[in-house]
Nucleic acid binder design. Structure first.
Lengths: 297, 297
DNA sequence: TGATACAAATTGGTTTTACCGATACGGAGC
DNA sequence: GCTCCGTATCGGTAAAACCAATTTGTATCA
């Protein structure tokens, strides 16, 4: 029993004749006849009664007809789903972003994607870099943007642009107005940090280490897993903090937060688009990947 | 896109490997590879990512997988339905019977059928002979029992046994006790008849005509389309009536109704099993047809 | 009752497909 | 770089799908 047989059976049943059905199916009557014979053989019962002026379905034929229509319908739906998928229409794209790019880049990219491909709905997951990579492995997301690098064996990364991480203090902080602060001075100043595993923490840690400072030795007054919350903490005069320039752009402009110049220390990091190595991107994800680059320019 | 391809795709997706999937599907890995290539070609997208340690479904593959399972399920259901049908299990058999055989033969036959094939449910339609034939043509029923004959061009009939049609009167009727009544005497006696189109009417009409009597000339005091109702009418002393012996067996035994001997006139008729010519009977109907003959013996 | 259409079944032969075994290729792990 | 494991590809064979032509079967009509 195969699809072709069922399709021809349905058209013959609909037209009430082998020859008409065959014509409708663009095959010869002889082929149609053979198909029906094979189908009847497979079923073990006669499906069409030959009347001399065509053919009518038997009781068994009526049963097969109903089911055959369902099979054909399912197959059509399969083709339809693939078509939709290829046009990235009605599909859900799952992406992820670590805190900073997830908060400040993803929304723009999603908006741009929805503008060009309104058929795509996006599900975005925000987490720190390590969480995003984990979600990639577990296939919760197809593509992610993180602020650190990823293992080249499991992932394919692509640079996307960069970001400056600033040391900021509340206006009126005693460091304000100073041309430069020496890195060692950090050791005696209350500071708010991101949790380990976050991209921000990683690059700050690496940069300070180059100046002989271990983050473990800092006077960490709080470890907070949200940049936004850290910003609020600095505004509340809890201490200073390393924070992405993107996250404090507004506050810097309004003068509520002040960038502190650390002598000889400029912390930058690149964002990367990351996906599982060797995996094919869905058309939706491929479109998103393209847009990410444009948006960043 | 065909069933085989989908089936192999599903097994490969389930086993996570071309070679394991092929083994499970009892084909070689090479064939499996070709099937997937063909399927991917048909879909226009990659369905499986080859990882070097097997294969995992792509986003597109996940979509196809869900739909492919549905297609395969539908096909399985088709096969299952046919199997049930062939075993006459869970099927509804539609039969018909004209008044007399429908009332006095069908119930026994249905009971016998249900005893041997409990999977069959029977839908029986009772009507006069012409109605039964009409239902056959309209395919409301597959098989019918009528008390007259049917057009040999459209129907296949099979004799099933016969029945005597008696002229009966209420006990105490002035004809009771007479050895014989002359047919002409009928013209002066109130009589209750079945409607035209009924088998009973047909054979009575034919028999009387042989004795030069037209039914139109009878003193028909009522035309009733139910034998049971006619019986009640005779019991109520409305008049005499031709009635199937089967229908009055009980009343004759109890002496409430009395058979009248019409000189030189014995009306018998055969019952026939009728079905549409050239049409295949469902297994259920075929079983029923067999049983009908046995029950009648 | 035959003649005549019309429809489906069958036949014979060609093209296409399905399948397998063997082999080439390619990534993962040592 | 080598080996192992898995997929892709190649070449050949057997099966099937398909068609054109023909036969068979069934109503319809004269």
């Amino acid at each position: 029993m195969n699809i072709k047989q069922l399709e021809i059976f349905v058209t013959i049943a609909a037209t009430g004749s082998f020859s008409k059905g065959a014509e409708a199916a663009c095959i010869t009557q002889s082929t149609a006849s053979q198909h029906i014979a094979a189908l009847e053989d497979a079923c073990g019962v006669r499906l069409l009664d030959r009347t001399g002026r065509g053919a009518v379905t038997t009781e068994a034929g009526k049963i097969v007809l109903i089911h055959a229509r369902q099979v054909i319908k399912s197959l059509k739906e399969t083709e339809q789903a693939i078509l939709q998928f290829r046009q990235a229409d009605g599909v859900e794209l799952c992406v992820g972003g670590s805190t900073i790019p997830g908060t400040y880049l993803l929304p723009k990219a999603i908006a741009a994607l929805r503008a060009t491909d309104p058929g795509i709905t996006v599900k975005a997951e925000i987490g720190d870099s390590s969480e995003i990579l984990e979600k990639l492995i577990e296939e919760h997301i197809e593509i992610g943007i993180i602020g650190s690098t990823a293992d080249g064996k499991q992932f394919t990364t692509e640079a996307l642009g960069h970001d400056v991480i600033l040391l900021v203090a509340r206006k009126g902080h005693h460091w304000c107005g100073r041309a430069a602060v020496q890195p060692e001075e950090l050791l005696k100043e209350p500071i708010i940090m991101r949790e380990k595993g976050s991209g921000t923490n990683d690059v700050v840690d690496a940069a300070l280490r180059q100046h002989g400072i271990k983050t473990d030795d800092l006077m960490v007054c709080a470890t907070i897993s949200s940049s936004e919350a850290i910003k609020q903490a600095v505004l509340a005069d809890c201490g200073v903090a390393f924070i992405s320039e993107m996250a404090v752009r507004g506050e810097l402009k309004q003068g509520e937060l002040v960038p502190i110049n650390l002598a000889g220390l400029t912390i930058t990091r690149s964002f990367s688009v990351v996906r599982r190595k060797g995996r094919t991107l869905s058309p939706a994800a491929a479109a998103f990947s393209l847009i990410l680059r444009k948006v960043n320019l």
